[in-house]
Design a protein around this nucleic acid. Structure first.
Lengths: 205, 205
DNA sequence: CAAGTGACCAAATTAGATTATAGTCACAAC
DNA sequence: GTTGTGACTATAATCTAATTTGGTCACTTG
């Protein structure tokens, strides 16, 4: 399970420090139990047996801790997607699984870890780096799948790659972005299948 | 400009009554100036020179008035779409204009009549009949365009009509539904063009 | 110098008391 | 029967004071 340590969200002190990990760990359990807003920085401090002030030696703000947790949460989705893509042989199948996994993992997060989902949705709404990095990573994976499909002759090559990826990104957006996904829960299981068909038809050479 | 008098949202008294129209008129100006929440039923009563109680002879609730205004607002979008579709010759062009008009009218509502937009968004979020009827009407128009395209041989005919319409509906949803549109404002002008291309490619016979 | 904290402040949040509002009803005027 | 209302209630919105909370900093301790 690889983290999104991307873009180094505001943090202080040594990057690898036992206490930093303790904070993140405590934050993960507290946030998922009581939610981001209901847990105070003092709660986290108490949980690891330090003073509140010490927390701020490692994180710039409470939001920075939130972003760290958000990154962890979203990187779990990314990991699931990467696994799904790796488990498929053809680019067509990779795309199908990518889209389906993306949506179903998101839905599952919504129902099984609502509090963490809410952080992700808020993060996406506020344009936090953690959410941006996530979207960017999804786009990278998509780009790789499309490129592979082009190279294997499965997908058309006339349209510029960026353009193709961008429009597919638009199609997937309502199921990728946690802020939007919550409004599409009713179709989130079936839509990826149908939309994959549509996209793949448009991708035919 | 044809109203969506559909599904008869909760109302009382004679359907066509001068006072009813006065209420709707007052509500339209008040809601668009001060917003739905900030205007009270008493405000509307005062505006038309009757008592608050009399309002309830014509509408079941404040929400019913809100739905009436929402229907009017959304039917303006429908009218714009119908006009755009009527102004095009080929089904392909009809679809392009339909999608583009839908999005740009919605965006324009957001920026020029924010208070009314908010009612529409709220309506969509709560699943009010006014918003449902709107979505249903859009789907009808889309169905007609697709059917015409199939009959003229411009679009493929293998896939069941319902299925095709449903998946295109999914693609347009983020720009049709006011609740979702507000999160897609940044791409709402360009996306319809690109997504139309994608949809039309997938619709090729 | 590295690890750690209590005391402090401004801004946000809560809780509780108060007011405003949606909605009803019995009743009057015509 | 139709048109219309003032008086009423329960609930939701709003205001205010008191409390919490995010965040900083000077200061120990080893």
């Amino acid at each position: 399970m690889n983290e999104i340590e991307s873009s180094i969200p505001q943090m202080r002190g040594p990057a690898d420090h036992n206490v930093r990990d303790q904070i993140v760990e405590a934050a993960e359990t507290h946030f998922s139990h009581y939610g981001y807003e209901k847990t105070t920085v003092s709660d986290l401090a108490k949980a690891i047996g330090f003073s509140k002030a010490y927390i701020y030696k490692f994180f710039d703000s409470k939001q920075a801790i939130g972003e760290a947790i958000c990154s962890k949460t979203l990187s779990a989705i990314v990991a699931a997607v990467e696994e799904a893509v790796a488990g498929a042989t053809t680019p067509t199948e990779k795309f199908r699984r990518m889209f389906k996994t993306l949506a179903s993992t998101g839905v599952s997060l919504f129902f099984n870890d609502r509090k963490l989902y809410d952080i992700a949705a808020y993060s996406a709404g506020e344009g936090w780096p953690s959410a941006q990095a996530y979207c960017e990573r999804i786009r990278q994976i998509l780009t790789e799948v499309v490129r592979e499909g082009r190279e294997s002759g499965e997908f058309e090559r006339k349209t510029p790659l960026d353009e193709t990826v961008h429009v597919i990104d638009l199609v997937m957006k309502p199921y990728v972005n946690p802020l939007l996904l919550q409004y599409n829960l009713d179709v989130a299981e079936e839509a990826p299948v149908q939309l994959s068909n549509l996209v793949l038809r448009s991708l035919a050479p």
